[in-house]
Design a protein around this nucleic acid. Structure first.
Length: 573
DNA sequence: GCCGTTTTCGGCCCGACTGTTTTCAGTCG
């Protein structure tokens, strides 16, 4: 039973309890537990075996028992009982914007329906509007919501939304009367997927700013319009929430709208303990405003150092801040190498020259050219004879270039039986070997784990590319026991990739943190197949930062000479 | 349901906007 499945059970319990109208704090406890477990980075099962479940914040004696029950029986009797009381199909209704637990319950109590089609029909017949607390507007909103839900727009990959958000922020900045503007929310925390775009603004002409926003050409529909808060749905099918606050509240509002919600709740609880109150306008002692101009001021008022947005998930960062042991996160500009770029030698679209020029433009010092290996025919795997042509080509270019060095690498397939896709006498000529699984995804956990471990064990391999194989929103990770992979990587002194391609971000950040805690080196590669994609490097750095990585944890912060030395050291170990 | 250097009971983050009401509940972030 994986963490994700246990989290899902608790999440369903929370939602059913919500519809039932149960104690809101009990509901929050289940939600919080679901969130914590999902982001744990170690198997709950491991903790359970050691009897350490209650050491997880938010897991008390009762939830620990419930986890044990789930691990033992595969299900939770509480959930089964709730399902008998409230049809789980109703949970779909909760996904309709404007419908919350109270309204869902009212509809169910009156009509006993459980499908979107039935609900749609009732709205069209204007039967819903007759319920107390409902009206024709609500009916309209439900119909609109059902339509949106059927379009199935969920969370989008960060790499897809971020450039769009930056563009829209620039546009508002250049045309509306304002002092400060920034995107906040999950975009600022660089979470791997985002649900909406949050924009924070300071201005003394909020009404002008808001009407500018509401009339942007990108806007499809205005959902809510106020002087301090306006929400619109953009034509690309994503919601944008814009908040305008006074200049003095910039820091407080930025902290508040950056979240995460769990982080904010902890910070506010901390404030209460100190007799302070925090809202988006500032920090208050009684009626008196005492801080809020900058984030540093807000955290400072609580006796905390500033916490980088990427860490604000209530996953131990507040405790670390209190104890003065926040990591000194790797800075974006400290990442000076891209460890995984494809060229025309395999399925990439760019030549070595183009890659070198683009790297210089990005301010990089080195790029490892890791084309696919011979067996991966669909991706133009490089036959052995071309490999040495490529090697000479790289050497020529390196002689001419002072600023950027290319590294002769290969992304070598791990065959189904765990062997590698080039013979050893070829591998030893390749300066950087990153091994990867591209076939046999359907193998079971034992087989895949053993495949990866045998690659890690191979003396000529330096690292494993995209260790879980997941594609965000598209493909689940293959069955792999990461704990064993991590142990092997540690034992053999090998690195694990943080693949920065926007659909991969693999290792996912929660495992980056586990690997980093174990002392395993991480290496960012963009997996670029065309030079533009090398800009994804910053997404990889974001993942590393979310995984608490410091400069020393990332091989990409090494100079070309240092990295080459590391490559040699691995093979001599 | 969790939690505790005031506490093992009694707290638990805070505010904006909408749509329904006629002073506020529900939803959302």
């Amino acid at each position: 039973m994986k963490n994700k499945e246990i989290a899902e059970i608790f999440r369903q319990v929370a939602q059913l309890l919500e519809i039932k109208g149960d104690n809101p704090y009990r509901i929050r406890a289940y939600e919080k537990a679901a969130q914590t477990i999902e982001a744990l980075g170690v198997d709950v099962e491991e903790l359970a075996k050691k009897g350490r479940l209650t050491s997880v914040p938010g897991i008390g004696a009762d939830l620990a028992n419930k986890i044990q029950e789930i691990l033992r029986t595969g299900t939770l009797s509480l959930l089964e009982d709730l399902k008998k009381e409230i049809p789980p199909a109703l949970l779909t209704f909760l996904q309709i914007p404007s419908l919350g637990p109270r309204k869902v319950k009212a509809i169910y109590d009156k009509f006993g329906i459980t499908t979107l089609e039935e609900l749609e029909k009732l709205c069209l017949e204007h039967k819903v509007a007759r319920l107390s607390g409902f009206g024709f507007k609500t009916e309209e909103n439900i119909l609109k919501g059902i339509k949106l839900l059927k379009e199935k727009r969920g969370r989008r990959p960060l790499g897809e939304v971020l450039p769009y958000a930056e563009e829209i922020v620039e546009l508002i900045k250049s045309k509306a009367p304002l002092e400060n503007i920034a995107s906040a929310g999950s975009i600022r925390r660089r979470k791997e997927t985002v649900k909406d775009i949050d924009v924070l603004i300071t201005s003394n002409q909020p009404e002008k700013v808001m009407s500018f926003v509401a009339n942007l050409p990108q806007v499809e529909e205005v959902i809510a319009f106020g002087e301090t808060k306006t929400s619109v749905r953009l034509k690309i099918g994503i919601q944008m929430d814009v908040r305008v606050v006074p200049q003095n509240s910039w820091g407080a509002a930025l902290a508040y709208f950056t979240g995460s919600k769990a982080h904010n709740i902890r910070v506010r609880e901390l404030a209460l303990e100190k007799g302070l109150k925090i809202n988006e306008y500032g920090v208050y002692r009684g009626e008196e405003w005492i801080a809020g101009r900058t984030e540093e001021e807000v955290y400072g008022a609580l006796g905390l150092p500033w916490i980088p947005p990427e860490l604000r998930e209530d996953q131990g960062e507040i405790e670390a801040a209190l104890e003065g042991r926040l990591p000194r996160l790797v800075e974006y500009h400290e990442v000076i190498g891209d460890a995984h770029v494809h060229s025309k030698y395999s399925d990439g679209a760019s030549s070595l020259e183009e890659i070198m020029n683009y790297a210089e433009k990005l301010g990089l010092s080195w790029v490892a050219i890791c084309d696919h290996s011979q067996g991966l025919k669909v991706a133009g795997g490089v036959p052995v004879e071309d490999l040495f042509k490529k090697k000479r080509h790289i050497e020529e270019l390196n002689q001419k270039s002072k600023k950027v060095k290319l590294i002769f690498g290969a992304e070598v397939d791990i065959n189904s039986d765990g062997t590698l896709d080039y013979p050893d006498e070829v591998l030893k000529e390749i300066d950087f070997v990153i091994a990867a699984i591209h076939t046999g995804f359907q193998q079971d956990e034992k087989q895949i784990t053993e495949r990866i471990i045998s690659a890690l064990k191979h003396p000529l391999v330096h690292a494993i590319a995209h260790p879980t194989g997941r594609l965000i929103n598209e493909r689940e990770p293959y069955a792999v026991e990461l704990k064993e992979v991590f142990e092997a990587a540690k034992n053999y002194g090998k690195a694990l990739e943080v693949n920065a391609y926007y659909k991969r971000l693999d290792l996912p950040y929660i495992y980056v943190r586990t690997a980093r805690d174990m002392g395993i080196k991480l290496i960012i590669g963009t997996d670029a197949h065309i030079v533009d994609q090398m800009t994804y490097l910053s997404l990889g750095t974001a993942v590393a930062r979310r995984g608490w990585c410091e400069k020393e944890d990332l091989l990409n912060t090494l100079s070309y000479e240092e990295f080459m030395a590391w490559l040699k050291k691995v093979r001599n170990a």
